[in-house]
Amino acid sequence: MLRSYLRLILFTCGLLLGVQIPGLINDYSQRVEAHLLESREGLKGFEQTAQRFFKGDLQALVRHYRASDDPVFQSDANSIDSLLSRNQMLESEWQALQSGWLSRTLHVLTRPDPAIREETLKGYSYQILLTPDAAAWGLGCAVLFALLIESLLLLVGWVIMGGRRKAVQPSWR
């Protein structure tokens, strides 16, 4: 009886862990989108200047600023270049999040932007989403978690017992 309750507890823990994954991915995606929109807004004025004088080529604007003798323009060139690099990183991050559920999940769990990941984890509040994705993740993680932990405990018990099986006592019935 105790073993059945332990199985239920393991399954429930796995379920609760699994339903967090879609919420975490959703929060991370929203943060990337917010940073991307902010980045685009920060570049808007420079893009207008580049459109007006350099046919829309922001790199030409940066080169022009760098070639200037004015230290203010040279400093602005570094700022624009930094904004461009950040925008390109956010665009590529956003594109990675637009793919299928498996590659999006792998990306968020294995290759997220470290700063945005930290920001997401600090602001993340545990939630239970009632979506098909969350249910699938929850059930999948629950089964895997319960199976792995129970198998590990059985293996430990087998090692402690020296590989012997407990003898079955004959029933009086």
Rank of each mutant, 00 (worst) to 15 (best):
R3V: 10
Y5Q: 06
L10M: 10
F11D: 06
T12N: 03
T12H: 02
C13E: 15
L15W: 01
L17T: 08
G18Q: 08
G23H: 08
G23S: 14
N26Y: 13
D27R: 15
D27V: 05
D27T: 07
Q30M: 06
E33S: 14
A34S: 07
E38M: 15
E38F: 12
E38T: 06
R40V: 02
R40N: 06
L43P: 11
T49A: 15
T49R: 13
A50I: 10
R52M: 15
F54M: 12
F54G: 03
Q59N: 10
A60F: 11
L61R: 04
H64D: 03
P71T: 01
S75A: 01
D76H: 09
S79N: 00
D81E: 07
S82W: 01
L83E: 02
S85E: 07
R86C: 03
N87P: 05
Q88T: 15
Q88G: 07
L90M: 02
A96R: 15
Q98Y: 11
G100V: 02
W101K: 08
R104V: 06
T105I: 05
T110Q: 09
R111T: 12
R111V: 09
P112T: 14
P114R: 14
A115L: 13
E119F: 13
L121T: 13
L121G: 07
G123F: 01
S125G: 00
S125N: 06
Y126C: 02
I128P: 03
L129W: 11
T131K: 03
T131S: 09
A134V: 12
A136E: 05
L139R: 09
G140M: 11
C141A: 13
V143S: 04
L147V: 12
E150H: 13
L153G: 00
L153N: 01
L153D: 04
V156P: 02
G157H: 05
W158I: 02
V159L: 07
M161C: 09
M161G: 14
M161F: 07
G162E: 08
A167N: 09
P170L: 02
